[in-house]
Amino acid sequence: MINLLQQIKNRRLALQLKQNEMPMRIGISRQQYQRLEAKGNPRLDTLELIAKGLNSDVMLIPKEKLSAVLAVLESQGNNTSLQNMQLNHSNEQKKLSDDPWKGLLEDGDDEDDNGN
């Protein structure tokens, strides 16, 4: 399994970002970022900034679930379904931002108070 620093570099490359673009995205100095990617031991708050700059999240994965998570991440077929889940979540967020009260007091069906 690759280490965290290699994962950060791989994600940056997958997003086609240059190393010198990262400091601007996350608000740290160029030297600090270069040192971190090369051999660093980032603090949690710095790691969270990096994850955000790489459109990612920091997550603690229980060891007993690790193989399942890796299988999902590595499988090409599931990448499409993961992207669809993310799009659906994004669309749901947009709907909520348009009308945050929608559905909050409804009991699940589309009937009005008169049963119609």
Rank of each mutant, 00 (worst) to 15 (best):
M1Y: 02
L4V: 08
I8L: 01
K9S: 11
K9H: 12
N10P: 06
R12S: 01
L13H: 03
A14Q: 13
A14S: 14
A14H: 12
Q16Y: 04
K18M: 10
Q19D: 00
N20T: 11
N20P: 01
N20V: 13
M22F: 05
P23V: 03
M24W: 14
R25C: 06
R25D: 04
I26P: 06
S29T: 09
R30V: 05
Q32D: 12
L36F: 03
A38L: 02
G40V: 03
N41V: 13
R43W: 08
D45E: 08
T46C: 03
L47F: 02
L49K: 11
I50E: 02
I50G: 00
A51T: 00
A51C: 05
S56T: 02
D57R: 14
L60Y: 14
L60R: 13
P62V: 08
E64K: 13
K65I: 12
L66P: 00
A71T: 01
N78V: 14
N79S: 08
T80E: 15
L82I: 07
N84R: 15
M85Y: 15
Q86I: 09
Q86R: 11
N88A: 15
N88D: 13
H89I: 15
S90P: 03
N91Q: 10
E92H: 12
E92M: 09
Q93P: 04
K95Y: 03
K95C: 09
S97Y: 02
L104A: 13
L105T: 00
L105F: 07
L105P: 02
D107G: 12
E111P: 00
E111D: 04
D112H: 14
N114H: 11
G115I: 10
